[in-house]
Simulated scan of single mutants.
Amino acid sequence: MKKLLFLVIPVLILTSFTESKAQYDYNWAAGFRIGEPLGFNLRKYFQNGDRAFDVNVGTYGLIYNNDRRYNNGEYKTAGLMIQGIYIFHTAIFNRDWAHAYYGFGGQINSRRHFPDAWKNESIKSVSKISLGPTGTAGVEFKLPNQQIGFFIDAGIYLEALPSPFFLNAQISGGLRFNLVK
């Protein structure tokens, strides 16, 4: 619960600074993120400019959380992750170059799991597919007179299947190139 408050409160504070809506003139943006998740990011801005949809494809557990307890065993490897998040964003301090955003969506992961039984038996690892809801909040800054923006965000993934209520913090930053006006 404390982690969730840590994410929600800063976004509420940042978005309360302005009444104006974010008016991005872009339709698509593509980039990469470093952290958790690590990989490719594609963003589709919607017509009003204050909403978007993010698709992230990359690794899950590569940078951190690759050696932790999970479902009567351990994770010891990184896996593939696909994430879709519906984003709400708004300008900070009425500036078009600074935006705060938050959103909610879903995440699917594929990762190898090492049950505790592998220490005593011939079972080495089990491939796991997991899914659950995810949320994120962050800030994005666009460079003046450029199509490039950088961002930092944090979020949480709450696994629903196969291990309900398994939590994983997700923190990353990266670059996004605004492609189509």
Rank of each mutant, 00 (worst) to 15 (best):
A29G: 08
A29Y: 12
A30R: 12
A30W: 15
A30V: 14
A30T: 09
G31P: 12
G31H: 01
G31A: 05
F32R: 07
R33H: 12
R33S: 15
R33Q: 14
I34K: 00
I34T: 02
I34C: 04
G35Q: 02
G35R: 01
E36D: 10
P37G: 01
P37Y: 02
L38C: 01
L38S: 01
L38P: 02
L38M: 02
F40H: 03
F40K: 01
N41Y: 07
L42N: 02
R43F: 05
R43E: 13
K44I: 03
K44R: 12
K44M: 07
K44F: 08
K44Q: 07
Y45E: 04
Y45G: 02
F46G: 10
F46R: 10
F46S: 14
Q47K: 15
Q47D: 14
N48A: 11
N48T: 01
G49V: 00
G49W: 00
G49Q: 01
D50N: 06
R51P: 04
R51N: 06
R51E: 07
R51K: 04
R51W: 06
R51I: 04
A52G: 09
A52K: 07
A52C: 13
A52R: 03
F53R: 13
F53D: 15
F53Y: 13
D54G: 01
D54F: 05
D54H: 04
D54P: 03
D54L: 03
N56C: 05
N56V: 00
N56P: 02
V57I: 14
G58F: 00
G58A: 03
T59H: 09
Y60T: 08
Y60D: 05
Y60A: 06
Y60N: 13
G61M: 01
I63L: 06
Y64E: 09
Y64V: 11
N65A: 14
N65W: 11
N65L: 13
N66M: 06
N66Q: 05
N66F: 12
N66D: 14
D67P: 14
D67S: 14
D67I: 15
R68G: 13
R68K: 13
R68C: 15
R69Y: 10
R69M: 11
Y70I: 05
Y70D: 02
Y70S: 06
N71S: 14
N71T: 05
N71I: 09
N72V: 00
N72E: 09
N72C: 07
N72L: 07
N72M: 07
G73T: 08
G73I: 08
G73R: 10
G73W: 08
E74M: 13
E74Y: 15
Y75E: 12
Y75R: 11
Y75F: 15
K76F: 04
K76T: 02
K76W: 06
T77E: 11
T77H: 09
A78N: 10
A78G: 10
G79S: 02
G79Q: 08
G79K: 11
L80Q: 03
L80V: 04
L80C: 08
